[in-house]
Design a protein around this nucleic acid. Structure first.
Length: 321
DNA sequence: AAGTTACACAACCGCGGACCT
DNA sequence: CAGGTCCGCGGTTGTGTAACT
């Protein structure tokens, strides 16, 4: 049994909107509103358009207070952070950027931002493939958390190397990468996440193996698709001898679209990071409006003078036999 | 100047979920 | 509870234009 078409495609006009059509639609909505029924609207407004097309035109172009044009650095940053946090949930990201539409942001991401961020992270791809060669790389996010005194070029919080649909993860991999001395605090943080079961109180506490590769990268593997972790905890880093904290929780939702990264912050930068990133993740809530993530970020544990990296990446091993 | 390519943006399509009957 | 309808979302395609050869 097929789905009934939303409109008669034979009589409906497609393609770019003319100024006359825009005026008709605008005037109708100003006078009558949408009436809660987009399907009936074009007929009432005298438009030979599909209701969905009208809705799209209104929401993305004609609606008041729509912002067009270049995105600011702040907007870039928010998009980067939210993409790292929730993936391609454009409507949620758009909700954090007044005047921007999901379509706008999606286009901006696909055409500009992604390319922009892809530059400069090539080495890490190699790094990842070296010790995870058997896994199919599904999504690789590079997140750069800038410490307060970090130089401007470190301020962009996210670089992205390889993105594809975040579906069908069967492994989630969280690793940390540090520049200069910050790496140790992040490694410690990640180690703490792996070694403290108390951090996770979800249905499945499935953090399994933590591993160190040859050049000191550390990864934590999640062998379960549906880990649900909603708490935020402070965990004192152990095992690597650093004063580090895990701030925030993460969630791998049932639909496993999300792999949230738990960030480690050096003791000296924890508060700043909390402030910096809480805004970036504020749009991420579960069905009961509980925050899914409170903090992501990484900082320089030794004084906040250098930038540091961490990245969360998700892999699928569905090509493994 | 004409043809080709690359890019940016607008619009379309199909699916999932909410809601209604 | 099942089926139908509509809305909203995200992925994809189409179109116009600038840049390049």
């Amino acid at each position: 049994m097929g789905r009934a078409p939303c409109c008669d495609k034979a009589t409906v006009k497609k393609g770019p909107w003319s100024p006359e059509e825009d005026i008709k639609l605008k005037e109708y909505i100003h006078k009558h509103g949408t009436g809660g029924n987009w399907i009936a609207l074009p007929h009432k407004a005298g438009l030979k358009r599909c209701g969905k097309s009208c809705r799209l035109r209104w929401l993305n172009y004609l609606r008041p207070n729509i912002k067009h044009g270049d995105f600011s650095d702040d907007e870039d940053r928010i998009i980067c952070n939210l993409f790292a946090t929730i993936g391609s949930r454009w409507s949620i990201i758009a909700a954090q950027l007044p005047g921007r539409t999901d379509n706008d942001i999606k286009n901006y991401w696909n055409t500009k931002l992604k390319k922009k961020l892809m530059h400069g992270v090539q080495p890490y791809t190699t790094h990842m493939h070296n010790h995870c060669s058997s896994m199919k790389q599904q999504q690789l996010l590079f997140l750069t958390a800038s410490a307060p005194a970090a130089p401007p070029e470190a301020a962009c919080p996210l670089s992205l190397q390889h993105l594809s649909s975040p579906h069908d993860y069967s492994h989630h991999y969280i690793s940390s990468y540090g520049s200069s001395n910050s790496s140790t605090s992040l490694l410690s943080a990640a180690a703490a996440a792996g070694s403290h079961g108390g951090l996770l109180n979800g249905e499945h506490q499935t953090m399994s193996t933590s591993c160190l590769d040859s050049d000191g990268g550390l990864g934590l593997y999640f062998d379960e698709l549906c880990a649900t972790v909603t708490t935020s905890s402070g965990v004192h880093g152990q095992g690597l001898g650093m004063e580090s904290f895990i701030l925030g929780g993460f969630q791998l939702q049932e639909d496993h679209h999300k792999a949230m990264l738990v960030a480690g912050a050096g003791a000296g930068a924890a508060n700043q990071l909390n402030q910096q990133y809480s805004a970036a993740t504020s749009g991420c809530y579960d069905d009961e409006a509980k925050p899914l993530v409170s903090v992501t970020g990484g900082g320089d544990g030794a004084g906040g003078t250098s930038s540091s990296f961490f990245y969360g990446s998700s892999y699928s091993n569905d090509d493994e036999s």
